[in-house]
Simulated scan of single mutants.
Amino acid sequence: MKAWRVHTNGEPRDVMRLEDIPDPEPGPGELLVRVRAANVNFPDALMCRGEYQVRPAFPFTPGVELCGEVLAAGEGVPESEATRVGARVIAQPVQPAGAFGERSVVGAASARTAPEALDDAEAAALHVGYQTGWFGLHRRARLQPGETLLVHAAAGGVGSAAVQLGKAAGARVIGVVGGKAKAETAREMGCDVVVDRREDDIVAAVKEATDGRGADVVYDPVGGDAYAKSVKCIAFEGRIIIVGFAGGAIPTPGLNHALIKNYAILGLHWGLYNAKDPAAVQACHEELSGLAADGAIKPLISERLPLDEAADAVQRVFDGITTGRVVIQP
């Protein structure tokens, strides 16, 4: 089969190689799947660069989530709707057999029936980003109807998921983007207010939109300057969710500031829930599937690309020049 592999760390466009390799074999508790679609995520680039918390041995295939068709089950896999041969599932690959190949191996425990309301590309983009958004907004920040949600990078894959989930929860959503094209995308995703960080004063815009109160919840996958601006426009008893540092700079919170303004700083590492509370991940999947069936959420797929364009796609996602989700369809 054909698959992209990384033999040394560096920029994705430089180190990802499309190679012919043997089909992977499912081990105990694993499923072999035919990849129908693989969503490109920021961590794919970090993995190529050697900067992700998971560092697989070389050579490895990037790609952390997919929609696939079950071809075979390894030893000890319990029978279920999501593990039968022919099932259409969303799942996370088991390294070194990542999603950017014609076939992959996934943990049977991570396999979940793909929502019928979504096509392959949309389903591939549902799992990590929307689970992260749901756990961040509901489990960590306890977002309430009528509250104001501020989403950084609102036109990106992670941000657009938070925008949709915020609207589905009855929140008023302010989206921060970089550039006019992304501003238009954020409006199409349902943002009530859009702030272009290249032209607008984020702090002033948020205070104006909230009559001086500030945002009740901030969803921050960017870090750096985005976080610095967030603490200047957070409401009394507001909650800032730290999702990632796509901007490249890890902020150093001033805890004295959090004390005097009565706001909470909440870390979110969604992957821990798979180990600590897998039942909650399954419950979230059922909730997301229901929202998709109702039309309340639908991943924004900006590009559907063939396998041979994966390296360039990973690079562009890392460079921050894409909107929505970029999906590879072998």
Rank of each mutant, 00 (worst) to 15 (best):
E79K: 11
V317K: 01
M47C: 07
P59V: 05
G244I: 12
I240E: 10
A293W: 02
C67D: 10
P43W: 11
C233W: 14
V163E: 12
A82T: 14
R239Y: 08
Y273N: 00
P56D: 12
K180C: 06
I301S: 06
K180D: 15
Q53W: 15
I297L: 06
G68A: 08
A228Y: 05
F135T: 07
P12I: 07
M47L: 12
Q95Y: 12
A293F: 01
C233N: 13
C48Q: 03
R84F: 13
P299R: 05
G214E: 09
E75C: 09
C48S: 07
L150E: 06
I242L: 15
V203D: 03
T132W: 03
I260C: 02
R172A: 12
G157V: 04
V281R: 06
V85Y: 09
E65Y: 09
Y52L: 08
A292D: 04
V40Q: 00
L255Y: 08
E75N: 12
C48R: 00
P253C: 14
G63Y: 04
V173C: 14
F135E: 04
Q144P: 01
A125M: 10
G223P: 04
A311V: 09
A82Y: 14
D14H: 07
A124Y: 04
G136E: 13
R239V: 10
K207Q: 13
T252P: 01
A38Y: 01
A215E: 12
P28W: 03
R103A: 06
L143S: 03
V54M: 03
R213C: 01
V128T: 15
P56Q: 13
Q315W: 05
A161C: 08
H285Q: 14
R49S: 11
G295F: 06
G27V: 11
R49D: 09
P24A: 13
D225N: 11
M1Y: 08
P93C: 11
L255E: 08
R239C: 05
T61E: 11
I260Y: 02
T113A: 15
V89Q: 07
F100G: 07
H138E: 15
C233V: 15
L288A: 03
L272I: 02
L291T: 03
D308T: 09
G212P: 03
T323V: 14
V217Y: 00
V222C: 03
D44F: 08
S160T: 11
D23I: 14
S160K: 04
A258C: 10
A99R: 01
A91F: 10
P12R: 05
P12D: 07
Q92H: 13
A313F: 07
F58R: 05
